[in-house]
């Protein structure tokens, strides 16, 4: 395997980014070999992003991550990112930026996290998820634009049993996963056409309630609290319109969720942690073959929406 390190070198009054490339059998050996190429030792305690090529991720993450967990000097708050194509391009692209590669990528992921395009995973929580049988990993996926200049968020990479499935959810779908896994303080935005006029909303808070209805079906209830961000032309002087819009939104969002769940089931990727839930609610349903069960599961989604605020104009 091949590893590439981008780090900053302290100069008199500024820092400069240096990129080293090395090969080896394992991440540790790569690092050792890389160290031979520079005059100083590589200190991974300031690691801020770990970018893994998608071809490596297909046969399981665990073996690449061990070294990060074993050495107490490593930072476990770094992001794990899956990259399309060759990782080298991503690091090379960083040479032209003013920010360091690590800093850039971690900011890219963090801003995506706030908008719920990617769920929150650090190196540590990645490990915890890999070791949990009832849930699967979902990691940010980045791509480069045509000119090989700017990396951008390509969505999320779906995992099943610790291995990358090869399937990527585009950002507009990946935010649905963010919605389903809702954490506090995250804003999820949706835009639709309502009567041919743009309608944008932000989901402020989500209350979820899951229920096992039979041995083969599960029901996911979601209560959404929404703010209207944009609704042109048609103002809301008539309050009767609001239930109408709510209904429309409920229906649209349910559709979106169902689409995503179909993908998840196809890929046997239980990123929602349904397994962990079933394990508690109905232990007999959960066994070693959970992923097969999950693929066959009858998942019903029921979304209830409530518009709380409409902004400063009616």
């Amino acid at each position: 395997m091949k590893g590439i390190y981008a780090y900053s070198e302290a100069l008199q009054d500024s820092t400069e980014i240096t990129v080293i490339e090395a090969e080896g059998k394992s991440p540790r050996e790569v690092r050792l070999n890389a160290e031979m190429k520079v005059e100083q030792s590589i200190d991974l305690s300031m690691l801020s992003a770990f970018i893994l090529g998608e071809d490596l991720a297909t046969d399981g993450l665990e073996k690449y991550l061990d070294v990060f967990y074993r050495d107490p000097y490593n930072s476990l708050t770094a992001f794990v990112v899956i990259a399309k194509g060759s990782v080298k391009d991503y690091i090379d692209a960083s040479k032209s930026w003013s920010a360091e590669a690590g800093e850039y990528y971690s900011r890219l992921i963090r801003s995506a996290e706030i908008l719920s395009y990617v769920p929150e995973y650090t190196l540590q929580t990645t490990g915890a998820t890999l070791n949990s049988k009832g849930t699967d990993l979902v990691l940010p996926y980045i791509t480069l634009d045509e000119k090989q200049q700017r990396p951008q968020l390509g969505g999320v990479a779906l995992f099943s049993k610790g291995k990358y499935t090869g399937r990527v959810l585009k950002p507009d779908q990946s935010k649905v996963i963010g919605l389903l896994l809702q954490k506090k303080g995250r804003k999820i935005q949706f835009s639709f056409f309502y009567n041919n006029k743009p309608l944008s909303i932000t989901v402020m808070d989500v209350k979820k309630k899951w229920k096992v209805t039979s041995s083969n079906s599960i029901k996911l209830d979601y209560d959404l609290q929404m703010d209207i961000q944009e609704l042109s032309g048609d103002n809301l002087t008539d309050t009767k319109k609001i239930p109408e819009i709510e209904k429309f939104l409920e229906q649209k969002i349910t559709e979106e969720i169902e689409k995503v769940i179909t993908v998840l089931q196809e890929e046997k990727s239980d990123v929602l942690g349904v397994g962990n839930f079933v394990r508690v609610a109905k232990p007999e349903m959960f066994d070693e073959n959970w992923h097969e069960t999950f693929a066959e599961l009858d998942i019903a989604v029921n979304v209830k929406g409530k518009i709380l605020k409409v902004g400063i104009i009616k």
Partner: peptide, 19 residues
């Protein structure tokens, strides 16, 4: 224990003490 410092601070200090 240089790794105890958060990234931003550590960069500052590194430039400062480097010479």
């Amino acid at each position: 224990h240089f790794e105890i410092l958060p990234l931003e601070l550590s960069n500052q200090i590194k430039t400062d003490i480097n010479n």
